[in-house]
Structure formats: C-alpha cells, structure tokens
C-alpha cells in the first residue's frame, strides 16, 4: 500500500512541478493541467493516443524492471529496441509470430554483448549498453540508407512490412493487437519473477550477489540470463512498434522509448504489474504534452522534464534508497 501511495504521490507532485515550471514562463498552471488531462484522456481520440504510446513504454519498462531486479544496469533499452525492430523487419515475410520471436532473440543477443563483456572483461554494463545504443542507431541509419532502403530508393526508410505480418487492429480503433501481447508479457514477467525458482534466484542476485553466490546461485550466469531476458523484452517492444504502428523502419524508430523505460520502471518501483500503470501515466504525459504544444504552444520537451522529476521525487520520498535496483522489500 505504501508503495502505491508513493507512486501516485510522485506522479501527482511531478505534474504540479510541471505546472509550476510552465507558470515560470507565463502559462497559467490551471489551463496547463487542464489541457494535459483533456489531451491525454479527455476524448476517445486522446485515449487511443495514450494507449498507443503506453505499449512500447510498458515493454521497455518491463525490460528495465527485469534487469534492475537482477541488479544489472541495462541502460541499453534503446539499442535493443532498435535491433528488435531491425530483426522483425528482416523476418516479417515469415509472419507476425516469426518476426516477434526474431526480435526477442535479437534484443537478447544485443544485450548479451554487454553481459558477456561484464563477465569476461569486467566492463561495466552501464557504459557498454549506452555505447551499444549509439552503435545500434548508426547501424539502423546505415540499413535504411543502404541495404534496407525502400525499393524506390527515395527516402531513408524501408518499404512497409507485408500486410500479413502487421499486427491486426482492434475493432475500428487505431489500437493494435500488440497491446494484448504487451499485457501477456507483463503477466509472464510477474509470474517469472515471483512464482518461479528462476525469479527467486534472479531477485536474490540483485538483492545481494555475494549472499546469492554463497547460497549456490551462479551469479554470472544469472546476470547473463536476466540481461538476455531484459533485452528480449526490449527487442519485442521494437517489433511491436514496427508491426503495429510505424510499419516501416527509419532512423528515429525508437524515439527515446528505450530511455523512457527507465523512468517507467522506477515509477513502478520495479514491480511488473505496477509497470502497466506507470507506462499509462507516461503515455498520457507524452500524449498530453503533444496537445499542450498544439493548443498552447508549450514545448513538448516538458514530457522529458516530467520523467526526470518523477524519478527525483521518488528518490526524495525515500523509496529509492531502500529500493535500489534488485533490492526487494
């Protein structure tokens, strides 16, 4: 219960701070909040936008939850998202399932580079995952300007994925079946973390690696598995965004979803089920920020600012200290 209160409090306080920041530049805080709310959940159209953005956020958030729970810093969600989208594109002609699987494998492998270097050369995964993000971005840039560029060769983007591979839309809305996949993955993550021996070992590793080692857990292997799993989920996010929304590859396909996943996971206080609410909150914030810009000309970078404030407020509430990654209550 306390964790729930902390999460809601942090979200509310960050909205308040956002409004104050707006006020500092002469925008009425009340109007600002009103637009933010109506622009994110005030209409069916806004609500669809919010849900559409929540799907990738939920998955990249889960990826971070899994890694942080194991005490490993996967900041590489962005890169894993990208290689996931790339793999999904390459395999899309074999159907949706194949594309989703390929993306998960690609994300897992990309993340495993970092865990391999950690185990083998003691290179900190915080940095290697960030470097791998940059490399993935340039790799994608190369692909959409080179081998994967659309057949007409005009724009730096790929051709659309085959219609058959695209995720089906849900009953006349712009929502796609990826939302169902994302929710299933959420449930599976919860089950894995809390109802299996693997989950127990994973959390034990994050909580106290030396104690886990002492208790017979192969910490290095455990970390490698957690990292691969985390990468797989982030890769899946890329595939779902490709097959459900963008349908084409282009340079900015990841659009910061990987990094935003960190804020999502922290707001959810590393709980898989709470991640749903956290992703919806940030999805709403991003959608509301769009409306804020359209109707009040306020820069949409307030959404980034909001993510930061949520994390800092959470730390202030003291939850983060007891709750450094991997540490369970």
């Amino acid at each position: 219960m306390r964790r729930l209160a902390v999460g809601i409090g942090a979200a509310a306080l960050s909205l308040l701070l956002l409004a104050l920041a707006g006020a500092a530049f002469g925008h009425s805080p009340r109007v600002l909040l009103e637009i933010l709310v109506s622009g994110s959940i005030g209409s069916r159209f806004a609500l669809e936008g919010t849900l559409l953005k929540s799907v990738p956020l939920l998955l990249t958030g889960l990826a971070v939850v899994i890694a942080f729970r194991a005490g490993v810093w996967n900041i590489g969600g962005e890169g894993q998202f990208i290689v996931g989208a790339l793999a999904a594109y390459l395999t899309s002609r074999f159907g949706t399932t194949a594309a989703l699987l390929a993306a998960a494998v690609a994300g897992a492998l990309w993340a495993s580079i970092a865990s391999l270097l950690r185990v083998w050369r003691n290179a900190p995964e915080v940095l290697t995952t960030i470097l791998l993000n940059f490399i993935a971005i340039h790799l994608l840039g190369y692909c959409v300007n080179g081998p994967l560029q659309e057949a007409s060769g005009q724009y730096p983007q790929s051709d659309p994925v085959p219609q058959a591979a695209a995720l089906p839309l849900l009953g006349g809305s712009s929502l796609h079946a990826g939302i169902v996949v994302a929710l299933l993955v959420t449930l599976a993550s919860w089950w894995l973390l809390y109802r299996t021996r693997e989950g127990l070992r994973l959390r034990a590793t994050g909580f106290n690696p030396s104690a886990a080692q002492y208790a017979g857990v192969d910490v290095n292997a455990q970390i490698a598995r957690a990292m691969a799993l985390s990468g797989a989920v982030a890769g899946l996010a890329g595939a779902i965004e490709l097959l459900g929304v963008t349908h084409r590859l282009f340079e900015r396909v990841a659009a910061g979803y990987g990094y935003a996943g960190i804020a999502v996971a922290l707001l959810a206080q590393l709980h898989p089920i709470a991640t749903i609410a956290a992703a919806a909150f940030f999805g709403a914030l991003a959608t509301g920020a769009g409306e804020l810009q359209r109707s009040a000309s306020i820069s949409s970078s307030v959404a980034t600012f909001g993510q930061a404030v949520v994390i800092l407020v959470l730390i202030l509430f003291g939850s983060m200290r007891a709750f450094a990654p991997g540490r369970d209550e």
Binding site: L52, S174, R252, V253, A255, G290, Q293, R294
Partner: peptide, 15 residues
C-alpha cells in the same frame, strides 16, 4: 495557428 514537434509516426498521425 497551431504547431507540434513530432518524432514518431504515431505522433504524425495523432497530430
């Protein structure tokens, strides 16, 4: 008039 900076195709459509 109204404007929005958009990053993703989802935002293009939404806008």
């Amino acid at each position: 008039i109204s404007y929005q900076e958009t990053k993703t195709p989802a935002e293009f459509e939404e806008g």
